[in-house]
Amino acid sequence: MDNSKIDVTSQLSADTFKDNVKSGSLQADKNEDQSSIDRPEPLVFEPSKEIVELSRRGGLSMVLQTLIASLFTALVLIMPFLIVYTFVKVSWMRLPLAAYVAFCYLDPAVDNGIGRRVEWVRELGIWKYVNAYFPVRIVLEEQLDPSLSYIFGVSPHGILCFSGQVVMGSKKSGFDEALSGLTVHPAALHHALTLPLFGAFLLSIGAISSSRKSIRQCLARGKGHSVGIVIGGAKESLHTNRGSRKLILKNRKGFVREAIMAGAPLVPSYVFGENDIFFQVEHPILRRLQRWLQSKMMFALPVFYGRFGLIPRRTQITAVFGSPIFVQKNSSPTYEEINSVHAKYILQLHRLYSRFKPVYDPEGDDLVIA
Score class of each variant (00 low, 15 high):
residue 163 S to P: 02
residue 195 L to C: 08
residue 143 Q to R: 15
residue 158 G to E: 14
residue 185 H to A: 04
residue 219 L to G: 03
residue 149 S to I: 06
residue 148 L to S: 08
residue 210 S to D: 08
residue 184 V to D: 04
residue 152 F to K: 09
residue 180 S to T: 12
residue 198 F to L: 07
residue 135 P to S: 10
residue 177 E to S: 14
residue 138 I to Q: 03
residue 187 A to L: 05
residue 178 A to W: 12
residue 172 K to G: 00
residue 222 G to T: 05
residue 158 G to W: 09
residue 204 S to N: 09
residue 162 F to T: 08
residue 176 D to N: 14
residue 153 G to S: 15
residue 167 V to G: 01
residue 176 D to G: 06
residue 166 V to R: 14
residue 143 Q to V: 05
residue 170 S to D: 11
residue 194 T to L: 07
residue 141 E to L: 01
residue 161 C to Y: 11
residue 217 Q to K: 15
residue 147 S to R: 13
residue 144 L to E: 03
residue 173 S to F: 03
residue 199 G to W: 07
residue 150 Y to I: 01
residue 183 T to K: 15
residue 135 P to W: 08
residue 212 R to I: 01
residue 194 T to A: 05
residue 226 S to G: 12
residue 195 L to G: 03
residue 149 S to P: 10
residue 195 L to H: 12
residue 207 A to N: 09
residue 188 A to M: 14
residue 180 S to R: 14
residue 147 S to N: 10
residue 160 L to K: 14
residue 160 L to S: 07
residue 198 F to Q: 11
residue 183 T to G: 03
residue 164 G to F: 09
residue 166 V to N: 11
residue 160 L to H: 09
residue 167 V to N: 05
residue 179 L to P: 07
residue 173 S to Q: 12
residue 145 D to V: 00
residue 198 F to R: 13
residue 215 I to A: 04
residue 149 S to Y: 09
residue 147 S to M: 04
residue 177 E to Y: 13
residue 155 S to T: 12
residue 196 P to N: 10
residue 212 R to T: 10
residue 212 R to W: 02
